[in-house]
Computed example of a mutant assay.
Amino acid sequence: MAEPRRNRLDTPTDVRRPLVRRPSYDADAFGSFAEQFARFMGTARFLLYMTLFVGIWLVWNWLAPEDLAWDLYPFIFLTLMLSLQASYAAPLILLAQNRQEDRDRVIAERDRQANARAHADMEFLAREVASLRMAIGEVATRDYVRSELRALLAELDEKRSPDPRADEE
Score class of each variant (00 low, 15 high):
E169L: 05
A86R: 08
G55F: 13
D163Y: 00
R21K: 11
R45V: 15
T141L: 09
P12K: 13
R22Y: 06
Y49S: 02
S32Y: 06
R8L: 10
M134D: 10
S87N: 01
A108C: 06
M134I: 00
P12Y: 07
E168P: 01
N98C: 10
G42R: 04
E101C: 12
A120G: 09
A120N: 13
L95V: 14
E128A: 09
F124W: 12
V20E: 07
A151W: 07
E123R: 14
E148M: 02
D104I: 13
D10S: 07
R105T: 11
A118F: 06
R150K: 06
L80F: 14
V145D: 03
L48H: 10
P65H: 05
F46R: 05
I107E: 15
L84P: 01
F37T: 00
R105Y: 14
A2W: 09
T43P: 05
A151V: 00
L72S: 12
W57Q: 02
V54D: 04
A126E: 07
F75H: 06
P18F: 03
D26F: 08
E158V: 01
E138G: 10
R39V: 05
G42I: 02
T11E: 15
S87A: 15
A126P: 00
A120S: 15
A151E: 12
Q85H: 11
R103L: 07
D71A: 07
Q113L: 15
H119I: 00
P18W: 01
E155T: 02
L9Y: 14
L80I: 10
A90L: 13
G137M: 07
R165L: 02
A114T: 11
A34Q: 04
A96C: 05
Q36K: 12
P162I: 03
A166W: 00
V54F: 00
W57T: 02
Q113N: 14
Y88W: 10
W60M: 04
E158W: 01
P65K: 04
L72V: 14
M122K: 15
L72R: 13
T141K: 03
L58E: 03
E158I: 00
D102A: 15
A154G: 09
S131M: 11
P65N: 05
P4N: 09
L68Y: 15
N115L: 15
P74E: 03
